[in-house]
Write a protein that binds this DNA or RNA. Structure first.
Lengths: 123, 123
DNA sequence: GATCTGTGTAAGATAGTGCTTACATAGTCG
DNA sequence: CGACTATGTAAGCACTATCTTACACAGATC
């Protein structure tokens, strides 16, 4: 998840993600969208995105086609939702679990880091 | 937004955010949660979080109280929602705007970087 | 097979991050 | 005031990130 968030923190990489979000594009095609930067630089960004699971690669003859991989953002989205939900919501959840917030503040911080899927609200 | 995402990409800083999410804590109090690291290191993390707008600071006598600032994550959340929403949803939005996707792929990638608020679905 | 095209990788320069120790500063309390 | 407490800042160091140029290599094409 560190890797994912760090990957997404770069504006060039976010722009690449938007380019490949709907359909796949060849590496060179992607590179032409960034005339201010050399092709190898773009290639390295693509590698970072692929390593963090944000895009998938498919060889096509000579070329390598990149496409957006939705699941790559799942953990990051889960973190944001966890942070975003308000105190009342989380208190209610805690109450349903018969947890007592004061006792579990640290524990929840711990457990929340590796479970919990995103509430799907837009797809 | 780069700054925000980069701030959140660090696991120590995410842990700090969870600590101050519900109520404010003094810097020293926060530092005690990270025995593996010196107090100045934590102080520097707090500075990064404050600079990126993810926490707010309030002097209290001798101490400095930190608390979670929800709006700090807004742009980051908006980006995730933009990426997360599926092709059909975005096509529908484009249709309502009378945009034609093929023509506007690059344009949307451009404009999407600085508008659009998050659909609030958990608070 | 020779060559062109598309693409990744290596090496190196430069800048940035994240820690540590040592120090500075501001408020509190006797 | 003087000492104690809470905290930020400075300097330095190791490590990492992000570029560039030069090169390697696989697949297409003649």
């Amino acid at each position: 998840m560190d890797e994912t968030l760090r990957a997404v923190a770069d504006p060039t990489r976010r722009a690449i993600l938007r380019l490949v979000r709907d359909g796949e594009l060849a590496a060179g095609e992607i590179a032409t969208h960034f005339p201010s930067m050399t092709r190898p630089a773009v290639s390295q960004h693509l590698r970072v995105l692929a390593d963090s699971g944000l895009v998938e690669v498919r060889p096509d003859g000579n070329r390598r086609m990149y496409r957006w991989h939705r699941e790559g953002l799942r953990d990051a989205a889960a973190f944001l939702d966890e942070m975003w939900s308000d105190r009342l919501t989380r208190l209610k959840i805690a109450a349903e679990r018969e947890d007592w917030p004061e006792r579990t503040r640290a524990e929840r911080a711990e457990q929340a880091s590796h479970g919990q899927q995103r509430k799907d609200c837009s797809s």
